[in-house]
């Protein structure tokens, strides 16, 4: 339920195109970064090669490829799917691990800076939705378990 997906039919078309390569900022600025190679391996049944590779995390999610794409697909679809697989195997970068832990625990990526707010004369921050969020996330995981069991 609500899992990440990858459309292999579109990916097949994508492997014959390559149009967005020239507009992708990571392709232009990181010499070793080339989603075309990742896509080729996925289609050859060898996606595992990339699970521990830093490349899959170097996609900036800038959505340039998505906007350029005649299929409204984008290199990023393949990179996002690969990141999801890597994460499920525990191969995500340490900072992503820390960020995720903080997010599930507190529902935020940091707490409002209270002393600085006071100095600036800002009002008290509003109540966070942490508790409700935790309930919601637990519900999602419960439903997933039920789906799996069915």
């Amino acid at each position: 339920m609500l899992e990440a997906k990858l459309d292999l039919k579109l990916l097949e078309m994508c492997s014959k195109c390559g149009a967005c390569y020239a507009i992708c900022p990571s392709c232009v600025n990181i010499p070793s970064y080339d989603p075309r190679a990742v896509i080729k391996d996925i289609l050859d049944g060898e996606h595992e090669k990339w699970i521990n590779h830093s490349s899959i995390w170097q996609c900036l999610e800038c959505h340039f490829c998505l906007e350029m794409c005649y299929q409204h697909y984008g290199f990023e679809s393949a990179m996002t799917a690969m990141r999801n697989i890597a994460t499920r195997k525990g191969a995500h970068p340490p900072q992503v691990k820390r960020g995720w832990e903080m997010f599930v625990k507190t529902s935020r990526l940091g707490e409002p800076a209270l002393p600085a707010r006071k100095k600036l004369g800002l009002p008290e921050p509003k109540a966070s939705g942490a508790e409700e969020f935790r309930k919601l996330y637990a519900l999602l995981n419960e439903k997933r378990q039920q789906h799996k069991a069915e």
Binding site: M1, A4, T87, H92, V96, W100, V104, Y137
Partner: peptide
């Protein structure tokens, strides 16, 4: 870039 890479549902 953080949450969607870990859990799309979340």
């Amino acid at each position: 870039s953080l949450v969607n890479n870990v859990d799309h549902g979340a």
